[in-house]
Structures are given as structure tokens and as C-alpha cells.
């Protein structure tokens, strides 16, 4: 199963402060360990929300809202995609991560990624198509 492991933003990340050379090196080592263990599928750091934008859907209207966004602790500063056997394994790896920021409290959030089978067969296009065909047929035969 896959996990999206998100580093929550902090004041410093939102201010666009870059990590120190030491933190970069520590993070690099951790990433290397993840790759070598066959765990890491992808991973990226995100620029501050001041360079981001949001799209709000309201009825049929779509409104663009430019960053920065206020709720710092709810923002994401970076993420990984990991392949693990269980949430426990993802947590174990996360515990080995160096502190993502040097100052203040910070958090990493781990969320399991939906797999195709989690949606159940109802969501497969094949079946939906099949069902629609069946409905049409039923409709036709009752109209007759």
C-alpha cells in the first residue's frame, strides 16, 4: 500500500527560509535510506503558499484566490509517496525522519492512499457502463 507523508508548513517555511546545510544533508541521508529500502516512490518540497493559488468551487462559479494563505499549520510544505506494508511501517519510517524544521514544533501527517480496489467494483468504468446499458434495455422493454 501507498502512503502520502506530508510535512506541515511552519512560519519559517512560509517565509521562504531555506533549510540549513546540515538539515539538507540529514534529509538527503534519510531520503537515500528510503530509496535504498525500496520505500520511496516520490518526494518533493513545496514553495511557500505566497507563490501558490487556490481555486474555489461555488455552485457553477470558479474563483481564483492567490496565496499566501493564513492557516500556516494546515498548509503543506512537502510530501513523500511511500510504498509500505502497513501504516505501522510508514510510522516507523516517519519516526526516523530528521526534524523537518530546525525551530519550533512541526508535524508530519501520514495518510494512506486509496487503491483502485478500495472503491469497490461499482466504481470501475466497465461495470458502470454495463449497468447503464442494462438500465437502457430495461427502459426500452418497459416502454414497449
Amino acid at each position: 500500500m501507498r502512503f502520502c507523508v506530508m510535512v506541515r508548513a511552519t512560519k519559517s517555511s512560509e517565509a521562504g527560509q531555506l533549510p540549513s546545510a546540515k538539515l539538507l544533508a540529514d534529509m538527503g541521508r534519510f531520503n537515500e535510506e528510503l530509496v535504498k529500502a525500496g520505500v520511496m516512490l516520490a518526494g518533493e518540497g513545496l514553495q511557500p503558499s505566497s507563490k501558490g493559488a487556490r481555486l474555489r468551487f461555488s455552485g457553477d462559479k470558479r474563483t481564483v484566490i492567490d496565496g499566501p494563505f493564513a492557516e500556516t499549520k494546515e498548509l503543506i510544505a512537502g510530501f513523500w509517496l511511500w510504498q509500505c506494508k502497513s501504516m505501522a511501517e510508514a510510522l516507523e519510517w516517519a519516526k526516523r525522519c530528521p526534524r523537518p524544521f530546525e525551530f519550533g514544533d512541526c508535524e508530519i501527517e501520514i495518510r494512506q492512499v486509496f487503491e483502485a480496489e478500495d472503491f469497490g467494483v461499482e466504481f470501475t468504468p466497465e461495470l458502470r457502463e454495463q449497468e447503464e446499458r442494462l438500465r437502457e434495455q430495461v427502459a426500452k422493454s418497459t416502454n414497449r
Partner: peptide
Amino acid sequence: QQTIAAVWRI
């Protein structure tokens, strides 16, 4: 138990 299994795996 699950933590131990995960540590073992790693």
C-alpha cells in the same frame, strides 16, 4: 505488536 512487525520488516 504492529510496531514490532514494522520494525522487523525494516
